[in-house]
Design a protein around this nucleic acid. Structure first.
Lengths: 162, 162
DNA sequence: GGGGGCACTGGAATATTATGCAGTGACTAT
DNA sequence: ATAGTCACTGCATAATATTCCAGTGCCCCC
């Protein structure tokens, strides 16, 4: 393995994807192999398969230009990335507790925290999540499955820690 | 040949590309082979190589979604395409001379040409370019590097020829 | 009519991207 | 400790896209 796997405080997949977004915004990247070389130059040792998967998750589109192909961030990708950052700020701030049953997650926040958190959460558009409804201090999250619910709860708890 | 080549009143490449746009807007097309089948269904007998070229000319991007790949005409692609076309019109019209040093390019235009050219230029958003400032007949372009400057100058000269 | 140039195309060769599979470390529950 | 998930990754390969090359028809000029 080129990089240690997920672990708090370590370089994560998410960090790498952030680096990818920065590179792609700054330079005209035309192929995954080229992107790979640029990443290696910045200290990321990563294989092409992983990049294919990263680009997919980041929703980076490959668009044809006069100077050949180029990967560009779709507005949506930028938006969800923004929302993710917002969530990481808001959750530690407002998180109270989380629980769930079946496909449902109930996230309790401090008073008044549900609306802003839910707004960011919706925009973040997690694949496991169908949608959410927010009151004043409670958010109901509807997941795609019970397994999805478990992943969502774990992820929320992790983000809430800061 | 599957179709008659360019000729007045006959089905042209442009017609086919129009059909491609319609299909792609209506359905989630994930590969060129799939698009080819759809076109055949509408009476267009065309090879995959040609589609690759068409998609390139139409600036259709291949974006990853949860349900696999899909070709779309992104707003951004459309926008920069407009800017590119505008630039190709304006440059031959207003170009006077171009020079540069370090990361800077100085583009001289005929009187009053700097503003419209710079507007199109900015929207075109070349990856090599950080930004530009325009006066009445001069545009200062700030590039990412000296190498980028050279590419930019070459490209500008080429476009200016018409 | 006979080039020569041009725009366009398909098939094959090539380049690039997506994915099945297996392996790894972290974590959890038993 | 052991077994079972899970998230993540690279390698090998399948799937897909791009490019090279040769061929065709049209048009213009001699």
């Amino acid at each position: 393995m080129s990089r240690p796997p997920m672990s708090l405080g370590q370089p994560t997949k998410r960090d790498r994807q952030k680096a990818i977004l920065e590179i792609v915004e700054a330079e005209a990247v035309g192929s995954q192999e080229e992107l790979r070389r640029l990443l290696v130059g910045r200290g990321w040792d990563v294989g092409q398969s992983t990049l294919s998967r990263d680009l997919h998750e980041l929703r980076l589109a490959r668009v044809p230009t006069d100077d050949g192909m180029r990967y560009v961030a779709t507005d949506q990708a930028v938006e969800t990335e923004h929302a993710r950052a917002a969530l990481e700020t808001l959750l530690p701030q407002f998180f109270d507790r989380v629980d769930g049953v079946g496909e449902l997650v109930v996230l309790h926040t401090l008073a008044g925290g549900a609306q802003p958190v839910a707004a960011a959460f919706d925009t973040a558009a997690w694949p496991d999540v169908l949608g959410s409804v927010a009151g004043d201090d409670t958010i109901l999250i509807i997941c795609r499955s019970a397994a999805a619910r478990e992943r969502v709860i774990r992820k929320l708890e992790k983000m809430a820690e800061g």
